[in-house]
Each structure stands twice: as structure tokens, then as C-alpha cells.
Design a protein around this nucleic acid. Structure first.
Lengths: 157, 157
DNA sequence: GCATTCATACTCGGATATACTCTGTCCGAGTTCTGCAGG
DNA sequence: CCTGCAGAACTCGGACAGAGTATATCCGAGTATGAATGC
């Protein structure tokens, strides 16, 4: 049970992108956050494949969000990085051994899987309730108004 | 975001142990579930270190629950296997780069970390709501009454 | 017949290899800007 | 002075190593059983 460190990078990048008017190169995003450029590029590719950001090549290229920030949930970003498969995968060990569960009983998922999946659904619901726009608003609340003005100014240089 | 396969084994083993009167050796648990004995032993050790099961050595040794099954939550088992640390670890990248967040603003956790931790808390709450006793009751519901009688009978052989 | 002792069989526990995924990096393909030459 | 073209610089994208962790396994330490032996 460990989330990739790239998740944190990706979410922060989405918040920055939500405040940029022009495409932002991976190079810029990396130095803004003080992280590895090449490795961040890998994660941005995953965001691109998931359809969350659009990449433009060329001299003034970079990354930009494909949707308004209030239509991108944190779960979207997490799933883009971590993959869409469930964290818990039932291997149906109840069907093994000397007393296997009957096919009749296996119509429905076993209780263990149900509990794990319910918990995961609660996790997803919680992440769905927060959008990138919410996070951006939170930054202005925490760091004071005008923060994103300075960010935009720095991005333009 | 991937749970260890051992989690599934551990939970199922706890359900079986909740129905056994005598200590059950790892060998027995492994063949009951059709899984590797030596690897299961590793996970049982983790349950033992977490204080969920007690191990007795010797000829009639084995594992037994230390508490009533309705006082062991699924979360207890999961944390014993996966470790107690959070899945999301904030590396505070907001403090890096050319526009670092002020120490003033860093009094509270950043919005990203708050959202991730809230989701993880929801996940834990959901797992806390289910006990091993609940799962055992579910097995009897799914596989029919008398299932655990057969299990006990097999364990005694 | 009974108590003691000793060998035995069975258990757990930690130390030990292997496979796989995450982390981190590099170079090539493609696109746009810019400078320059020609009309 | 304007237009077209070529070069160059900058971008993304996928292919390539290294490290850490999950997976799987083995052998040694410890204990209760049970039989054998002596009284």
C-alpha cells in the first residue's frame, strides 16, 4: 500500500497548469517544483495518455489542461498515474484446498473482497469530491492572494 | 497503489482461526487455502508481531487469535501486513523552486496532502467498520450453515 | 506399576536468493521560431 | 520593403539502466509429546 511519489508531482503540476494561460514546458514545471525534469516528463506523458493534459511540440510547446480545472478531480490524476486497476485483487483462494467454495456460493464476490472494494470505493469517492480548482483556491487561501500572479509572472519569464 | 497479495491470505486465515478451538499450524492454513506454506509463514509472523495472533511452538503448536474475532477489524489485519505508514507521503515540494511557500503558510499541510489524507482516512474508516466476526458470519450466509463445522472437522484430522 | 529421562517429531522464527516494479536517465522525432537571401 | 526558405533551437515521446521492494524459499532454534528405562 504505497502511492507512487509521482502522484504528488502530477497533482501539483495540474494546479500550476490551471493558472497558466500558455503551454508550460516540462522543464519549467520541473524547476518550479525543484524536481527531476526527465522523470517528471514520464509522469506528464501518463497524464497526456489519460487525456487530462494536451501536449504541444515545438519551440513554444508545453503542457496545458484539456478541461476546465473544476472538471478535473484529484481521482482523475491519481488514476492516470497509478493506473485504473483496483488496489486489491481477489485471487479467489476460497476455491482452493480441500474444502473449496461451491460455484453456487461464488456467484457473488467473497466477503473479504466486498469489504476491500467498499473501502476502496470510499477512498475514490473522497478523491472525486476534490477538484484541481478546489486545490488552487486553497493555495490562494493558504499562501495569500496574489500568489498565482507571481507564478504567472515567473512562468512568463 | 497496489496491495500486497498477502493481505488476502492474512484476512482469510484470520477468519479460519476465528472458528478453530485449537492452535492451527501454518502448514494447515496453507494447504487449506492452497497457497505456499513458507511464504504464508512470513505473513503470519507479521500478524504475530502486530499482536493479532499468538504463536505456540512445539508439537501441537500453531496460531490462534489473541482477541475475540469481533474485536479484530479488517484494518488491523491490513495494517499488520502493509505497515502502518500512510500510503501518501508529502515531500513538501511546494517549498522548493524559485517561489517556495512561506514558512507561515506551511504551518498547515498543503491542500494536496489534506485531500489525500482525507481519502485515506475514509478508506480506513470503511475497513474499521468490518470485523473478522462479520466476515465469518458472511461466509455462513454465502456458503450455507454448517460450513464451519466441516472446516473444524477437517482441521481436527 | 510409576516416575524420570531422553530421543523424537513437530512447530515457529529469522536469514537467504530471485523477480518485478518504481525510480531515474538518455537520445531521437517533430515542430516552430528566426535570420537571411531573393524578388 | 515583402515573401519564401533554410537552419537552428526547443519541445515531446519512447527506449534504456539502476535501486528498492515484494515474492518465494531454506535451514536452524525451541518445545511438547511419547516411549523407554530404572526403581
Amino acid at each position: 500500500m504505497k502511492l507512487s511519489g509521482g502522484v504528488e508531482w502530477a497533482v501539483h503540476c495540474c494546479v500550476v497548469l490551471s493558472q497558466a494561460e500558455a503551454p508550460v514546458p516540462a522543464q519549467r514545471l520541473a524547476e518550479f517544483h525543484g524536481i527531476s525534469r526527465t522523470y517528471l516528463a514520464k509522469h506528464l506523458q501518463q497524464l497526456s495518455r489519460a487525456g487530462l493534459v494536451r501536449s504541444t511540440e515545438g519551440r513554444v510547446g508545453g503542457y496545458a489542461l484539456t478541461r476546465p480545472a473544476d472538471e478535473i478531480t484529484v481521482l482523475d490524476v491519481v488514476l492516470a498515474i497509478e493506473g485504473r486497476e483496483q488496489a486489491f485483487r481477489c485471487t479467489e483462494i476460497r476455491q482452493n484446498g480441500p474444502l473449496p467454495a461451491s460455484p453456487q456460493a461464488c456467484r457473488k464476490a467473497c466477503g473479504v473482497a466486498r469489504a476491500m472494494h467498499a473501502a476502496e470505493q470510499a477512498w475514490r469517492d473522497s478523491l472525486t469530491a476534490v477538484t484541481v480548482a478546489d486545490l488552487a483556491a486553497g493555495v490562494e487561501d493558504d499562501a495569500g492572494p496574489g500568489t498565482f500572479d507571481r507564478v504567472r509572472e515567473w512562468l512568463a519569464t
